[in-house]
Design a protein around this nucleic acid. Structure first.
Lengths: 349, 349
DNA sequence: CCCAGGTGAGAGAGCGCTCTCATGAAGATA
DNA sequence: TATCTTCATGAGAGCGCTCTCTCACCTGGG
């Protein structure tokens, strides 16, 4: 039935040459209306679709972009962050006529074994890489100019195009919010400082406190690894040091922190205020987490748009963009409490 | 630097012909050891990788398999199920030399617009489709024999290859477990019966009760849509009818059910036993959910293996496979309680 | 009535690869 | 020594497409 349809066979059926059919398919000029209609009708009837391999062989484009998620985030893949990011990337790929290929590597070995395929010419037009850590060797190799690359999240290398969210600004917003509510012993559960997101959220939070003439006491800070359990553990340690408010650098960790507090019957926000980062926690959670919401899907979409600009040559690398974040006030920061409580001051320098 | 390396140029550098280089790359016989080494060395030095478009043009294979997730499950994409499934599919794709392309359609329009690309020759070797609903038109079109397809989850059409988990057996297991613990008013929060998973879990649960000479009272059953909030709403309705145990057809819905119970200060499992299905709930949740665990990652991997058999012609469609499930006893079924409580009997026929 | 200018359509080359077939050298058999 | 079989290698065709070049035809101005 639909066997081996080619430009040639379509042309034969329509009584024209292969060249003319090609012109019709690619909407090029110099085809008379009646011939164009005749060819289109044959294409419709036969259900012909051009062979993409042949097309990319000559055009050098495949219409495929790759999304690389490095091996070590596999356990983190449970984080709704990645699902959203993939959605955003997919959403932007479809309209631009791109297909998305997903590269999840199980381990470093697989990563380096499959690496050639990723940068091999004739397969991918461009690449989006996410969740790189500082000094990531993969990034160094891939961004070597063979193929257009856009990184999601600020890379620590220069000359690489990227899309990031305003981690510093968001963390500062959290700090300002807590200060304005009158908290005195403000702590933080940070993300790994080996990631730029972790480092930027820490920097921003310290800066935000400084704007209110506060400092982050060293013993009021613990770091987690983005996982729920690490937030739980960090909060358990912090409890003894009696913060009255804690900024947790990811919602997933904040959920863990809330669990630790509940276990100890410490009320949120009456006894301690919590503010998260991400805006991914499902609304169902009671209480509703106050958080800094980042536009994850849009970040993914924007990455694809920049990548397309890079591929088409409309822009030259490196380009970058910072997506805005916003404070979303929920139940856990105490903003909706009749009167925020105060403890002894610890954040005054 | 790495510009336009072809078989021809590698051959020139190694002092052999294009054909010989091709033989070396494809590990074919009839190449003398010294020539083989010489060519391999040149390839290593230049970093040459064959052009995949050209290769697939002649071979008819692309090494790409597609994963299609229909439009309407986008909101469900938050469910860890899909993340795990994708991991499983990716894990099995990489070793078999396949690349995974992801097709997430935003809506029906996009679905039908991009459909040609999915089945267009010269792009995908095969297809994995998941989360189809009964009577899914996409499935009917795609499984039309143009390209090998494996469905994850039992399709309601014949002649389609698939991998499913033992939904019936698992639900029966849940029923038996609750019966053996002595519960008398056993209810169920079902999944949509418009999905085969929902229908099978219902059938299995009823069968399992029948094995214990019980029936599922109609007013002790509510259906949800796999979402947390639907589980919450369903449980709110059920509470008034005083079940002493409820089988919830997905863990995500079970989480919602637990939330509804907690809101009403109904203790689990002292006042009511809960058993879920999926085995995806993170261990962190306290209490730990008793559930029927299904091997999601393995299901994805197995789908790819079957697909590869279909592609290579080692097997002919339709083939199918049922993955086993297991009961995982946690805190919520009351199995670890000193003495399960009994209420008036409702499940006796 | 002839020739520039434009326009629709076909012929042909070539993208980089695989695969079949031809060739020539070396070894085996008569 | 002549013929037959290996085996290593090269030459060539062709996968289905795009793109350039060429040609045939039609128009209109001189």
């Amino acid at each position: 039935m639909t066997q081996n349809l080619t430009l040639e066979s379509i042309g034969r059926l329509a009584g024209v040459s292969r060249s003319t059919v090609s012109r019709v398919i690619n909407d090029q000029a110099s085809v008379s209306p009646d011939v164009r209609d005749r060819v289109k009708e044959v294409i419709r009837l036969t259900g012909y679709a051009p062979n993409l391999a042949a097309r990319s062989l000559v055009s050098g484009r495949t219409g495929v972009i790759g999304l690389v998620i490095p091996s070590r985030v596999h356990s983190l893949f449970e984080d709704p962050y990645f699902a959203r990011l993939i959605q955003g990337i997919s959403a932007a790929s479809n309209p631009s006529g791109n297909t998305l290929s997903l590269f999840l590597f199980q381990n470093e070995e697989e990563e380096s074994r499959l690496y050639p395929r990723v940068v091999t010419p004739g397969f991918l037009d461009g690449l989006v890489i996410t969740a790189t850590r500082m000094g990531d060797p993969l990034l160094a190799r891939i961004s070597n100019g063979e193929i257009p690359v856009v990184v999601v999240g600020r890379p620590d290398a220069d000359g690489v195009s990227y899309v990031d969210v305003d981690n510093r600004g968001g963390a500062a917003l959290a700090a300002n919010h807590l200060c304005s509510l009158g908290y005195q012993r403000i702590g933080m559960i940070g993300a790994p400082t080996g990631t730029t997101a972790g480092a930027d959220r820490l920097t921003g939070f310290v800066e935000g406190l400084a704007e209110c003439d506060r400092v982050l006491q060293r013993n009021l800070r613990e770091d987690g690894d983005f996982s729920e359990s690490s937030g739980y553990e960090a909060m358990k340690k912090l409890i003894a040091r009696e913060p009255d408010a804690v900024f947790v650098a990811s919602d997933t960790m904040a959920l863990g922190a809330l669990r630790a507090l509940k276990e100890q019957n410490i009320r949120v926000p009456e006894d301690i205020a919590i503010i998260g980062f991400d805006g991914l926690a499902p609304d169902r959670s009671s209480p509703i987490l106050t958080t800094i919401r980042q536009p994850v899907m849009q970040t993914g979409s924007r990455a694809v748009e920049l990548l397309n600009d890079l591929i088409s040559g409309a822009l030259a690398a490196p380009i970058s963009e910072i997506m805005p974040v916003e404070l979303v006030v929920g139940d856990t920061c105490g903003a909706n409490l009749p009167e925020p409580r105060r403890k002894g001051s610890a954040n005054e320098p």
